[in-house]
C-alpha cells in the first residue's frame, strides 16, 4: 500500500504493508531509533510519538492509519527551543538514569510545554502518567519538567 505522510516535517511516500506498525516503520525503515519498543501493548509509553499535535503510541498504530498524518519523533524536535530547555533541565537535574524511557517522556513533556503546561506538580504527573520509568526516577523527571517550564517562561 502507498502511503504519504509527514515525518519530522518532511513529506514522504512509502510502499508498505498496511498492517506494519508505525514503530517498525520508524525504527527499521526510517532509522529513527529514538522511538523505543517497551511493552508492545500500549502500557509503557516508550514508543510515544506526536501525531497531529497529540501524543500517541507507535506500537498500536498500523501503517494503514498514517495517510496525511504529521508525525514527530524526538529527532524532529531536537532543534526546537523547547526541546533544548527540556534537555538542559534533564542534564542539570540529573533526570536520566538508564535512558530507555526518556525519548517517550520527552514527547509527552514537549506537548505539555507547547500547550502551555505550568509548574503544577499534579498537572505534570497527569501529563506524564502514560510513561513508565522502570529505574523509578520519577521525582527527578518531575523536577526537570518544572525547571524546563521555568526556563521557557523566562525566555
Amino acid at each position: 500500500m502507498n502511503i504519504s505522510f509527514d515525518i519530522n516535517n518532511k513529506k514522504i511516500n512509502i510502499n508498505v504493508d498496511p498492517s506494519k506498525r508505525l514503530i517498525d516503520i520508524l525504527r527499521y525503515d526510517l532509522l529513527l531509533t529514538a522511538v523505543k519498543e517497551g511493552c508492545s501493548e500500549g502500557e509503557c509509553g516508550a514508543c510515544s510519538v506526536i501525531i497531529n499535535n497529540k501524543v500517541m503510541l507507535a506500537c498500536l498504530i498500523p501503517a494503514v492509519k498514517l495517510q496525511d498524518k504529521h508525525i514527530l519523533t524526538l529527532e524532529g524536535i531536537k532543534n526546537t527551543k523547547i526541546f533544548n530547555y527540556i534537555q538542559q533541565a534533564f542534564i542539570e537535574k540529573g533526570a536520566v538514569q538508564c535512558g530507555f524511557c526518556i525519548p517517550g517522556f520527552i514527547m509527552s513533556i514537549y506537548v505539555y510545554i507547547v500547550k502551555g503546561g505550568d509548574e503544577n506538580e499534579e498537572n505534570i504527573k497527569r501529563a506524564l502518567s502514560g510513561n513508565i520509568c522502570r529505574c523509578t526516577g520519577y521525582e527527578k523527571i518531575i523536577t526537570a519538567v518544572k525547571y524546563a517550564v521555568k526556563l521557557k517562561n523566562n525566555e
Partner: peptide, 9 residues
C-alpha cells in the same frame, strides 16, 4: 481509562 496516549487514540 488508559493513559493520555491511549485516550488520544
Amino acid at each position: 481509562i488508559g493513559s493520555p496516549q491511549i485516550r488520544n487514540m
